[in-house]
């Protein structure tokens, strides 16, 4: 009797897990990026095989949409490994993936080591707070002061009397790098929590009424509220015309002198063409093409 019950329960659980498996797009990155086990690109004769991309967790939505569209067009699969900008840059440099993805511009030493950057799009970094927070906009200076610990209570900004809880990303994250350089708070942020993915930041801010965080605009849904910066609400238009100040480039990284496989080159051409603009826009970022 016990055994039958156990068996039935196991079957039920397996079925419910399988039913949750949905689309064949890249898996959402909510856990910590482990060391990147990127697949090597398959040498593809006449557009078969797969294209491997690796890197920024912020670019998940964009690459996911582009990859899906490309697959429908040509039948070539595009894989995406959400390991973070730094790891993606490393991966392409070591030849472990075809195209590296970074949510920040390449550093000088990275360029010097033979890596080329191609800007795919511009992503706004939303400054997010809990939907219950009465504050709706802040100036860059205020944001900087909040994150360096000069302003510690929401009441100083006109909100409730509560301690501000600073959420951010871990050292080395492209999003963090982008945020800190634009707000001028490099190395000075007093984070309460340093999380390892954009998704984690959004979840945490959604749960804590006094939290503030930053996340790629493309990933923000209505679980959190995106603040206006200097009076400018973050949106595609304001990122495009530059009036929304907190933004960073989504960069495709390739290795100089290394020829991409036919499939990878074709994919690269596709996504940097105006053909892809609509898809890029659909993912919430502003195309640079």
């Amino acid at each position: 009797m016990k055994k039958t019950i156990a068996l039935v329960l196991t079957v039920l659980m397996t079925l419910s897990v399988l039913s949750a498996c949905g689309s064949n797009s890249a898996p959402a990155a909510t856990q910590a990026p482990a060391a990147a086990p990127a697949e090597a690109a398959a040498e593809a004769p006449a557009l078969s095989g797969s294209v491997s991309t690796d890197g920024s967790t912020s670019m998940e939505k964009v690459i996911g949409a582009l990859g899906e569209a490309y697959e429908q067009k040509t039948g070539v699969t595009v894989t995406y490994n959400p390991t973070g900008s730094g790891s993606g840059i490393k991966a392409v440099g070591e030849g472990r993936c075809d195209i590296g993805l970074s949510s920040r511009a390449l550093k000088d030493e990275e360029k010097a080591s033979g890596l080329t950057q191609t800007i795919l799009a511009y992503d706004g970094i939303a400054i997010i707070v809990n939907p219950a927070n009465p504050i709706n906009d802040l100036s860059l200076e205020q944001i900087a002061k909040v994150y360096t610990g000069e302003i510690t209570n929401w009441s100083e900004l006109g909100g409730d009397d509560a301690e501000i809880v600073l959420i951010g990303r871990e050292a080395g994250s492209g999003t963090r790098d982008g945020f800190e350089s634009i707000t001028g708070t490099t190395d000075a942020c007093q984070y309460r929590q340093e999380l390892t993915s954009t998704g984690d930041v959004i979840t945490t801010v959604a749960q804590n009424p006094n939290a503030i965080g930053y996340a790629s605009l493309a990933s923000v849904k209505d679980t959190v509220k995106a603040l206006a910066v200097e009076g400018v609400t973050p949106s595609e238009e304001t990122v495009k015309d530059g009036s929304y100040l907190v933004q960073r480039p989504f960069v495709l990284v390739t290795k100089e002198g290394v020829e991409l496989s036919a499939a990878a080159q074709d994919f690269f051409n596709y996504i940097t063409s105006t053909e892809a603009n609509e898809i890029i826009a659909g993912a919430g970022v502003v195309s640079a093409n």
Binding site: A32, A36, G86, E170, A171, G172, Y191, R192, Q193
Partner: peptide, 21 residues
Amino acid sequence: QSVRFLTTAVASEMAYSAGLQ
């Protein structure tokens, strides 16, 4: 306080790290 363990210190920064870090 928000804290970091020996284990999580390795896990959280390993992906992005380079050089001396």
